[in-house]
Design a protein around this nucleic acid. Structure first.
Lengths: 220, 220
DNA sequence: ATTATTTTTTAGTATAACCTAAATCTCTAT
DNA sequence: ATAGAGATTTAGGTTATACTAAAAAATAAT
């Protein structure tokens, strides 16, 4: 099993994320958009990742991640999310500040470091955004979840994750008081535009657009 | 103030360490030895570091670190030592395991991360090897120290640091029961070869060669 | 003081990761 | 079925970091 460089790890992680959900191959342009590099640079990298057998690459037809690749990507994701937990729980970062730092920390390569960190954090199963943390072997136990805008009027649930985890969106959620783990109830729905009103922890009422609700994932 | 790459940071740190003590310039060969790169690569790097004004470089005559360079080197050293404290105190690493991991962690560049880490660790002043941790501005408060082999018979002191911090040496110290912070007393000295016997914490007797003693620093 | 040795630098090469510009392939619309 | 649009790859260039081999400078030895 060849080891990957920082850049290769980042590309592979991007490809993994982009291939989640769809069965279709991931396009060069999509990767280019995600990585903020030019398509030409992506082509270069795809050839290299193909040589290392972490993706299947057919020129002009996009890529599929291999089992080996998936395992490696999940290891990087595991590290990223564990560091996020550390930053938020121990160092008191707010959840919108952790991304860039975790993007660097995730590349530190020491198996024992990650094992000890995991233990130190109490073997968390989800990161501060509610995303599941894969185990050492890449197994993920995800919880059934659904976008807030698909809930019925008066139904209840618990916020477990967000789809959009841009700093701007996370700050907005902090401001209005919606956080991972919050118990919510749909108290009103506007037919016209799909916007809703929810009650958080039986205390605070929040009004939000359908767009915002669609980016909040709940478990019922 | 230009920012440095990983490699530049590493070279600068090496140059800083090599210039401690001596007033003389640091030679290309010394740096090559420390960095485990070839002298030709060092020459390349020195030109670059000179351009960035973190060292003064006169061809063929070695280098001197500038004030700016010293400040940057101390920032890297600060990060390295804070991470070492974290690894030992929080993640239960033994002090001979921390070097390589800290060498990677020290390059994570986030001011706020280091500030929070410092706070989280309780603003430690010394790392697990007893070396002082510079503050944010590069100020170091070191304690007066002297090699164990220079103490007189029957004198007492406290182990505060080690000169040789190779894993092999640290493991040896662990085995015999000499650790940073230990209170010691010289109970015997062999004139012939300079080897000594010390009593650790009024409990355990250890016999050691002059060579070993010379690598242990104590505060009286 | 001149040669020999050691140290250091220069010249040229390699790899990784990026870029721009140009060429080539795929796909869609007529 | 084919032209044109759009996506993708190739070609060639750049920067950072390392290397080897050869040249040049400094130092040591006679």
């Amino acid at each position: 099993m060849s080891t990957l460089t920082y850049a290769e790890e980042n590309y592979l992680k991007a490809i993994y994320h982009l291939s989640e959900g769809g069965k279709k191959g991931v396009s060069t342009n999509d990767i280019s958009g995600e990585m903020k590099t030019k398509p030409a640079s992506v082509s270069d990298m795809l050839r290299k990742l193909g040589d290392k057998a972490v993706i299947e690459y057919r020129k002009y037809y996009g890529v599929h991640i291999t089992e080996e690749g998936k395992k490696l990507a999940l290891q990087t994701i595991r590290k990223h999310r564990l560091w996020e937990v550390f930053l938020v729980e121990k160092l008191k970062f707010s959840w919108d500040e952790v991304h860039e730092v975790a993007d660097e920390l995730e590349h530190i390569k020491s198996r024992i470091l990650i094992q000890r960190l995991d233990e130190y954090l109490g073997f968390p199963k989800f990161d501060p955004h509610g995303d599941p943390i894969p185990d050492e072997y890449g197994d993920v136990r995800s919880r059934p979840r659904l976008p807030l805008n698909e809930l019925d009027l008066h139904s209840t649930g618990q916020i477990v994750a967000v789809k959009d985890s841009s700093a701007a969106f996370l700050r907005y959620l902090d401001k209005v008081g919606a956080y991972i783990g919050a118990r919510i109830k749909i108290t009103d729905m506007v037919e016209f535009d799909g916007s809703i009103e929810i009650l958080v922890d039986n205390k605070k009422s929040i009004f939000m657009s359908k767009d915002v609700a669609g980016n909040i994932l709940v478990m019922q």
